[in-house]
Simulated assay, not measured.
Amino acid sequence: MSKPVIAITTGEPAGIGPEISLRGAHCCRDIVFPVLIGDYAWLKQLAGKMDSGIKLQKLDSARLHEAIEKKETASIGVIDSPLQAPVIAGQLDPRNGQSVLAFMDIAIAGAMNRQFDAVVTAPVQKSTLNDAGIAFTGHTEYFAEKTETKRVVMMLAGSVRKLAGDGHVMLRVALATTHLPLKNVHKAISIDCLLETVSIINRDLKNRFGIVSPRILVTGLNPHAGENGYLGDEEIRIITPAIRQMQETGIRVSGPFPADTLFQPRYLEHADCVLAMYHDQGLPVLKYATFGHGVNITLGLPLIRTSVDHGTALDIASRGLGMANHGSMVEAIHIAAEMAAVSSQNRRQNGK
């Protein structure tokens, strides 16, 4: 395919999102056609202070189509979605909450009508959106709601150096549950939940990552995977029966494994994804190994969405430009482009 068109929502304007979006788009413009979604005046002001080589152009729908057709790369396109209040770096303002939400809405609509091949999101501040009167749990949940997707799966991925031999392996960790209090996790795990979750992981690893026969490892919920029921019986009642049902359908899934010993090269180098039962069971390991270069990916959506592996970093933003690391944004754009290429190839093969 030609360069994929990647929409990049610039996130919380008082955080590092606008800066890393500008730097990431500028770095990746040789492999993608980046389109920033945010306040054009604010982004132009930042770009002027950051790097005179970063050129921006304001786009509407007609101008975007024309720029794509001409393969313009001298400047980065921006779909202008104005903020409601002036920005002070590091200081949140609920008046801009609705504008931040509008960035996402524009990206989702554009991806659904295939104007964009993928969406990459910079971090938002959940508290600011809620302070603005918007019930907001997170990007993952919001994209699911707006696309009317019944179940989505959060997966983080990053390249990890092999402990033995040369090169790197891609570590992928998906979650059976996402932003839940720990006391509620066991209530949210059921056989049906796990069947749907693994089905989504298996399908998207095939259709968007090009992995022909994915290998998925599943953790237990309890310490030592329940230790035969001594430390909890969810593995016996729920997780093991679900795994057996999935194996009967031909999915290459195994477990449950104790989470404290699963994250070792002898397991991970022969797996395409680990499914952890809850947020802080799997993600600390991945973030320790990949932080600053990891990518958050939402599986199960009718569009491609990736994101950085960190938050708004208001403290870094308050110290001025040039302090933020845009490595995760670059990786998110790269993975979005790779997923878009695989998806495009699949559509061509299926005649769609």
Results as ranks from 00 to 15, higher is better:
residue 259 A to Q: 05
residue 289 A to Q: 14
residue 264 Q to W: 11
residue 254 S to Y: 06
residue 278 Y to A: 04
residue 217 L to Q: 03
residue 271 A to V: 08
residue 315 D to W: 11
residue 297 I to S: 05
residue 238 I to Y: 04
residue 230 Y to N: 15
residue 246 M to L: 15
residue 226 G to Y: 01
residue 246 M to H: 06
residue 233 D to V: 14
residue 218 V to R: 00
residue 292 G to V: 05
residue 269 E to T: 13
residue 266 R to P: 04
residue 205 L to N: 00
residue 206 K to M: 15
residue 250 G to I: 08
residue 237 R to L: 14
residue 304 I to E: 00
residue 260 D to N: 00
residue 244 R to I: 15
residue 233 D to S: 15
residue 313 A to S: 12
residue 249 T to V: 10
residue 237 R to M: 11
residue 217 L to D: 03
residue 310 H to N: 03
residue 213 S to Q: 13
residue 253 V to R: 01
residue 202 N to V: 11
residue 306 T to Y: 07
residue 224 H to I: 05
residue 260 D to P: 03
residue 314 L to K: 12
residue 309 D to N: 03
residue 283 L to A: 07
residue 320 G to A: 12
residue 285 V to A: 13
residue 320 G to I: 12
residue 319 R to M: 11
residue 218 V to P: 03
residue 213 S to F: 01
residue 226 G to F: 05
residue 231 L to S: 07
residue 214 P to D: 10
residue 265 P to Q: 15
residue 300 G to Q: 05
residue 246 M to Q: 13
residue 303 L to N: 01
residue 217 L to K: 12
residue 242 A to L: 08
residue 295 V to D: 01
residue 290 T to D: 13
residue 246 M to Y: 06
residue 212 V to S: 15
residue 304 I to F: 00
residue 220 G to Y: 08
residue 297 I to F: 11
residue 222 N to V: 03
residue 309 D to F: 06
residue 313 A to T: 09
